[in-house]
Amino acid sequence: MSVEARERRQPWILLSPALGAVALLLLLPLVFIVVYSFWLRSAVGPDTVGFHLDNWQRALTDPFYRYILLNTLKIAAITTVLCAILGYPAAYFVARSKGNKVILLLLLMLPFWISYIIRTMSWINILGSSGALNTALMTLGIISEPFRMLYNEGAVILGLVHFLLPFMVLNVFVSLDGIDTSFEDAACSLGATRWQAFTQVTLPLSLPGLAAGGLLCFVLAAGSYVTPVVLGGPRDAMFANLVYEAIITQLNWPMGSALSLLLLFVLGGLVALYNRFLGLSQLTRGLG
């Protein structure tokens, strides 16, 4: 074999284990559940193989499923907006601050290293009936009975914002960090106020980062399973809870396949839309 031919084959040899793993453990399984979603669950014995539209019909028309889907998207949207409002100024502070770089970097990365389940359950200590807030309010004499703050939609949104905020901060930071500050100075020297310089120069330039952070927050919020179980009440189920219910509790795997694909299509549609206008590379910049 010539040296050139070997040189050409080399990268594919290096790539093949990773590509093989993704193909075998993600792509093929996704194709498989597409097929599976057309099968039928039978009361006894194995699922009925075939081409049945029943699961899809139910997934798309059942009012309960539709309600949960819309509610999930609503919760994800509120979470995303709150993350943007809280995260943008914080990211701006880190990007433009002249303080200790190591500490600022820690502020960006540290939240990622703290476990999701710990951060979620930490709110029980704060909001619970004998949690920090209720104890403080009762000690101050503002309330006499513990105030019920847990196990509702607000607590779920709070938990999701707390979990997803670092994704927003990091993405906005990456795009702000790439903007030359002399642009703002130039705008100011041409007569713009600081605020005008920000809204007309910096903010538009940082929109790709904001959009990347927003997409991540939305997709991760809409797919969350643990937060609604830990912080929500029985009526605050989100779509991933439906999927878990169908697959693990009811063992209705064909229906579970259809439901998870529905979630994939809705969120995948968003990612595709994002890719069409902004490109996926923006999304991975923050992670590198």
């Binding site: 590509l19 453990l25 993600l26 792509l27 498989f32 399973y225 579970g256 396949s257 994939l264 996926l280």
Partner: peptide, 26 residues
């Protein structure tokens, strides 16, 4: 190739979990 390799981030975790569970079970 890069997109394929980072695809596991782009697919919601629940969907990935279901797909792998049902496929490996099969």
């Amino acid at each position: 190739l890069t997109t394929v390799l980072i695809a596991p981030i782009l697919v919601p975790e629940v969907v990935m979990a279901v797909a792998l569970l049902l496929f490996l079970n099969f």
